[in-house]
Design a protein around this nucleic acid. Structure first.
Length: 722
DNA sequence: AGCACGCCGACT
DNA sequence: GTCGGCGTGCTC
């Protein structure tokens, strides 16, 4: 994607600090509402005036809606028909930097700006006056009558004269009932004050210091510190396996950012990881940062949003949506586990938080740290080309952590129909059980599709129109290409080796494997780990002192998903890494029908650079991302036929796309074929890297009519392919 | 998104 | 006649 941002950083950084324009009463201002109109509407500035970036309440039809003053009005709407802004809300104004970011993100993702603005204003109580609460401090007077309970209350207030207590806190602390406090308030000895409920977060101390760093870690940390201190946009790809001290190192970048008085944002792919991370922050900076994700309460959300805007939050830890918070002065964005697919939002607004982080940073002169043990190919390519800086952390114990890895060639194993554990793997596990050691059997279901494979030669049936593998369609009992929609009956003879009756949809379920394993090892306690559960299992740091067996190293290796090889590589590296400890290397066995496949070989030899180089070359040859561009068009309707009919019409009338040399594939069932009763159909558009794809898509889409019945959304840089 | 408007089929 | 289904269009 990144091209869009290339030459833009410097110019827009200036825009980010542009002056705020003041509009006196009666001036015509352009207001962007959060209503799905997607364009600015003209209003008359209110009595008290307003300014660019101000949050306002405006009348729209019979309703009052939230909006932001976007600038001077367009003046095309008859002045007599203009309505007046109701009021300016008490919220920190939306800065030019964030407005530009939303505009650019909207243009890039082909999303209406109003939907983008909604992402940035998804906070409860935004239009309410600041929520107040009563706090109690020491007053001037003395009570006429003193009692032991009253003395305790006054003693507490004297001791902690700084912090305003709530009624409950004060009563509990002094060991009295609230009525004692009430009595003191009446007497004037205690003062009751109203303060905003949303207070600033506890100040983080960048100098508090954390764990001692090794020389190598300190060197990388120093690089990151100076990159942040430069105060200009830049991106560093920080590569380091689990246990290499990656988190400690990027927390040094956070420290450098906080020392400069700027704000920092750390994105994590899932909520389950935040707890442990908050502890690390507390150990390093002496306090907990602000949190932003779906798991935080409404009150906390409001506090976080307001404090980020007012500078009362130095560091935010959050999910991808934290990228749209109204930071005052954002100096650093860390995207941890940057390769994680959770960063791609594929519902409502389609965006990739990793790419958007780079865009936002380029607009506010911030540094980006992309951290991962197994980076995405996109980031690897950007690091290779010099667009990103590269920092590598070696494992603490060198190569010793890598287990001994061997393939099990499934083509020569004597495997009974419907069974998945090969005799070789069975034997190896049995050996471990006899020695009283643990084994972990792993089922790779990530990027899983019911690909049809020949169990004699390993051949996967491909579509005759594209390079994509054919996927078994559960309802039709036919093979289907999920890229172009091509269908074919299920053959009985393998087109490659001509052996009959060996073609089978691969992909056992967790239940089936558990059952099979339980049968093979009746006296062992059995647990099978699948990549579906891997997200939660990721938190499980414990290594396996023994053997890791991968049931299906091939699955998704060459599906119709262009990132399948990459994901398989990342996943299997991580799983295999679980076997053994530094002092006692474990063993990893990979069951595969394609032992000579570059991905399997790269995993076995541990030669990552070779894998990425090969994968990059394959993508370059195919003209797919990051060397080409893709866009998904998702049509949804309660009526499948209607969605397909429009899809076919769109595929036929592809003039604006052909003009820029782009190709359309499909329609085919979308990765999620049905959501809430709506059938979803997808077209894929493929283009060269440097074509103005968004403009062409817009011109193309303009030709067709939409309704509430038949809806369309665009997915730039899709990640899911079936 | 809401909400009105308006154009057709089933009732008092 | 008119009540109410929801398809279409507008909101500064």
């Amino acid at each position: 994607m990144v091209d869009l941002f290339d030459n833009s950083g410097a110019d827009d950084a200036d825009a980010g600090h542009a002056g705020v324009e003041w509009f006196p009463a009666g001036a015509v201002v352009g207001v962007m509402t959060t209503q799905p109109l997607g364009r600015v509407l003209d209003y008359i500035a209110p009595e008290e005036g307003c300014f660019t970036g101000a949050f306002v309440e405006v009348p729209l039809g019979p309703r009052k809606v939230l909006g932001v003053v976007w600038g001077v009005g367009e003046g095309t709407f008859a002045r007599a028909r203009l309505r007046t802004v109701n009021r300016v809300l008490d919220a920190a104004p939306l800065q030019a930097e964030l407005r530009v970011f939303l505009e650019r993100a909207a243009d890039y993702t082909l999303t209406p700006l109003s939907a983008m603005l909604r992402l940035a204003t998804r906070v409860p109580g935004l239009s309410d006056p600041p929520s107040m609460r009563k706090v109690y401090r020491l007053g001037e007077g003395q009570p006429a009558r003193m009692t032991p309970a009253r003395e305790r209350v006054l003693a507490v207030l004297e001791e902690f004269s700084e912090g305003g207590f709530t009624l409950k806190e004060l009563a509990d602390y002094a060991g009295v009932t609230p009525s004692v406090v009430a009595g003191l308030v009446t007497a004037g000895a205690v003062r009751e004050e109203a303060t905003p409920r949303d207070g600033p977060y506890v100040t983080l101390d960048p100098a508090k210091g954390g764990l001692p760093l090794s020389a190598a870690q300190a060197a990388v940390a120093a690089d990151l510190r100076s990159a942040v201190a430069a105060g200009i946009y830049g991106t560093t790809l920080l590569k380091g396996v689990t246990g290499s001290g990656k988190t400690e190192v990027y927390l040094e970048a956070v420290a450098a950012c906080l020392s400069q008085g700027r704000q920092a944002l750390v994105l994590l792919p899932e909520i389950a990881l935040t707890g442990a991370f908050l502890d690390r922050v507390e150990a390093r900076f002496g306090a907990r940062p602000a949190e932003w994700h779906s798991g935080v309460t409404m009150t906390e959300r409001r506090r976080c949003w307001k404090m980020v805007g007012r500078g009362g939050a130095q560091l935010v830890v959050g999910a991808r949506s934290a990228l749209f918070l109204p930071f005052r002065d954002l100096g650093l964005i860390v995207v941890d586990e940057e390769h994680d697919t959770a960063y791609k939002q594929e519902d409502g607004v389609f965006y990739n938080a990793r790419d958007m982080a780079v865009l936002r940073a380029s607009l506010c002169s911030a540094h980006v740290v992309l951290a991962s043990a197994t980076p995405s190919l996109e980031s690897w390519v950007n690091a290779q080309s010099g667009k990103y800086k590269r920092a590598v952390l070696e494992a603490r114990f060198g190569a010793a952590v890598l287990p001994e890895m061997r393939p099990i060639d499934m083509r020569v194993e004597a495997l009974t129909q419907g069974k998945w554990v090969s005799p070789s793997l069975h034997e190896a596990v049995q050996l471990r059980i006899d020695k009283g050691e643990q084994s972990l059997l792993f089922l790779n279901r990530r990027g899983y599709a019911p690909v049809t494979i020949c169990r004699a030669c390993g051949h996967q049936i491909a579509c005759r129109n594209c390079d994509a593998r054919m996927v078994e369609h559960r309802f039709l009992k036919r093979l289907m290409c999920h890229q172009c929609g091509e269908q074919a009956p299920l053959p009985t003879i393998c087109p490659a080796c001509k052996v009959e009756g060996k073609l089978a949809p691969v992909g056992p379920g967790v239940e089936r494997i558990t059952e099979e394993v339980a049968g093979l090892f009746p006296h062992a306690r059995v647990a099978v780990l699948s990549s579906d559960l891997f997200a939660s299992a990721r938190a499980l740091k414990a290594a396996i002192e023994g053997l890791v067996g991968v049931i299906d190293a091939d699955l998704g290796l060459q599906g119709s998903d262009l990132r399948a090889a990459e994901r398989t590589f990342q996943l299997l590296r991580q799983v295999a890494g679980r076997a053994g400890r530094a002092d006692k290397p474990g063993e990893a066995l990979l069951q595969t029908f394609q032992p000579e496949h570059p991905v399997i070989r790269a995993i076995l030899t541990g030669d990552e650079e070779a894998f990425w180089a090969a994968e990059a070359e394959a993508r370059r040859a195919a003209g797919v991302p990051p060397f080409g561009r893709l866009a998904g068009i998702i049509l949804s309707s309660p009526d499948v036929q209607q969605a397909f009919a429009l899809g076919e019409d769109m595929a036929r009338r592809d003039g604006p796309l052909r003009d820029v040399g782009a190709q359309v594939f499909g329609p085919a069932p979308a990765p999620i074929a049905r959501i809430r009763g709506r059938h979803r159909v997808r077209l894929l558009v493929k283009a060269d890297k440097h074509v103005p794809l968004q403009a062409a898509l817009e011109a193309w889409i303009r030709q067709f009519k939409w309704s509430s019945h038949l809806r369309m959304s665009v997915d730039i840089d899709p990640q899911s392919f079936y």
